[in-house]
Simulated scan of single mutants.
Amino acid sequence: MVVGHFLKWIGTARVSERVAAVSALARAYVERDLPFEDRCAAEAALTLLLDDPSAKVRLAMAEALSMSHHAPIQIIAALASDQPEVAAFVLARSPLLTDADLIDRVATGSKAVQKLVAGRPVVSMALAAAIAEIGEPEACVELIANSGAAIAALSFRRMAERHGHLPSVREAMIADPRLPADCRHMLLVKLGDALKQAPLVAALMGAAHADRVMRDACVKASLTVIENTRAEEHGALIEHLRLRGDLTSSFIIRAIAHGKVDFFGSAMVALTGQAEHRVRALLSGGHDAALAALFRSAGLAASTHAVILRALKIWREVANGKRVAGAQEVTWLMLKELGGQASTGDLAGLLKSIHLEALRENARGHALAIAAA
């Protein structure tokens, strides 16, 4: 029997010869070119070679067997537990390792092992959840970059909670179109906190000023998040904002001033508990009295009702093609409800600041358009 001669020879062969021989034997096994008796003998020989003192021999075996559906499972399991350079091929490729096997490797393995598992061609939702829950930051970055990984929204949230303060994880997550809107907002807040606590920022601005600037920047960035959020994700984002205490009247007014009417409607549904179809019907064509009742049910102060009603009417006209307007025009007309530029108070101050921001943004866009012409 060929395998018998192989086993007698292997004990005296040099490492390079054993590497070539074990690679050839393993490939013959997975290609199923051997008769049944020789296959059984080859499996026994390969199992014996797991004890070879040279890692190069075991590495050659791992490379040859790593992608086969027909490799002996006991050999695959042993190679997966070998030293990292040997285990790498099997952990990254073998279709014989189950989710339970891989989750165990993630739980007990090194950072390098976790990265190998996270980079497999196919990563199930359960395995991705394990990496999100206990994986090192490097493994999470590898998982996010893996287009073959099925990552649940909950797993994205766990990675944002655990590692969102780290630039590498934050950048990978923000670049991923699968990232849920509430996670995107969470990462923006974490970025703001990191910038606020940076020694240079604190030295240049002072702690109080830095806190105010970063808070304002996060609010503005939140509007961008809303703009790029699908309607079906509004509920999760609103709940996230509400739990953080960010779903304030001023935030809602800022959203409606910028034309985020769908988001405003989702917020009214969440805050009032009324049916979505009823809220949508009121926003699209309801009378002022019915809308004011809706706002009261949502907990919006009576002083805000008139400016919100004015904004809604303008955005209705824009949607119906009767008017062309943007945040600059809408905030100006909202401010007129309070008496124009001479008006005072917190609400007037908020509308003035939104109006000035819109003016600056429009002027900036105009200047860039001129420069590009």
Results as ranks from 00 to 15, higher is better:
Ala24Asn: 03
Arg296Gln: 10
Arg244Asp: 14
Gly273Pro: 05
Ala369Met: 11
Ala55Phe: 07
Lys8Tyr: 11
Leu195Lys: 10
Pro137Asp: 05
His163Trp: 15
Ala372Leu: 12
Phe264Lys: 07
Ala231Trp: 00
Lys352Asn: 06
Gly4Ser: 11
Arg230Leu: 07
Leu79Met: 06
Val22Pro: 05
Pro84Asp: 12
Ile308Phe: 02
Ala181Cys: 02
Ala236Cys: 00
Thr12Gly: 05
Val279Ser: 02
Ser284Leu: 04
Val30Gln: 07
Pro137Met: 06
Ile174Phe: 06
Gly235Phe: 04
Ile76Trp: 09
His366Cys: 01
Ile226Cys: 05
Lys196Ala: 15
Ala139Tyr: 10
Val113Asp: 15
Ala77Gly: 02
Ala175Ile: 08
His5Asn: 15
Val2Gln: 15
Ile238Lys: 07
Ile256Glu: 09
Ala267Ser: 13
Gly164Met: 05
Leu335Ile: 02
Leu96Gln: 15
Gly119Ala: 14
Gly340Ala: 09
Gln328Trp: 14
Ala319Asp: 13
Ala181Leu: 04
Asp193Pro: 00
Gly4Met: 03
Met186Trp: 07
Glu17Ala: 12
Arg93Glu: 11
Leu335Asp: 07
Met61Leu: 10
Ser124Tyr: 02
Ala306His: 09
Glu85Met: 08
Cys40Ser: 11
Ser343Tyr: 01
Met186Asp: 15
Ile314Met: 14
Ala41Val: 04
His355Gly: 04
Thr47Tyr: 03
Ala369Thr: 11
His277Gly: 00
Thr229Cys: 10
Ile354Ala: 03
Leu48Phe: 05
Phe89Val: 00
Ala149Pro: 10
Ala28Gln: 13
Thr108Gly: 00
Glu85Pro: 02
Ala342Asn: 08
Ala270Ser: 07
Val22Ser: 08
Met67Leu: 10
Leu34Tyr: 12
Thr229Ser: 11
Ala367Tyr: 14
Arg93Thr: 13
Ala78His: 06
Arg93Asn: 15
Ala71Cys: 06
Ser124Phe: 05
Met214Trp: 03
His240Ile: 00
Val141Arg: 13
Leu97Trp: 03
Gln274His: 12
Ala100Cys: 05
Leu143Tyr: 12
Val15Ala: 12
Leu347Asn: 04
Ala302Leu: 08
Ala301His: 11
Ala26Asp: 08
Ala100Arg: 10
His355Ala: 01
Glu17Leu: 06
Glu161Leu: 10
Leu7Lys: 14
Ile370Cys: 09
Ala145Pro: 04
Asp38Tyr: 12
Glu142Ser: 14
Glu142Lys: 07
Ile144Tyr: 08
Ser249Tyr: 00
Ala181Phe: 00
Gly326Arg: 11
Ala62Thr: 03
Val117Thr: 04
Ala152Trp: 03
His277Thr: 14
Met125Lys: 15
Gly235Arg: 06
Val169Trp: 10
Asp346Phe: 09
Ser81Asp: 14
Glu133Gly: 09
Pro177Gly: 02
Gly326Lys: 01
Met61Ile: 03
Ala130Lys: 12
Leu312Ala: 05
Arg170Leu: 13
Leu179Thr: 13
Lys220Glu: 12
Val86Trp: 12
Met205Phe: 14
Val86Asp: 10
Ala207Val: 13
Ala78Asn: 03
Arg323Val: 04
Asp262Met: 03
Ser81Phe: 00
Ala302Arg: 15
Ala281Met: 01
Leu223Met: 06
Ala44Ser: 14
Leu204Tyr: 02
Val15Ser: 06
His163Arg: 13
Gly265Trp: 02
Thr272Val: 02
Phe6Gly: 05
Lys56Ser: 08
Ala255Tyr: 09
Ala172Thr: 08
Leu7Tyr: 05
Ala301Ile: 03
Gly349Ile: 03
Arg254Trp: 00
Gly148Met: 07
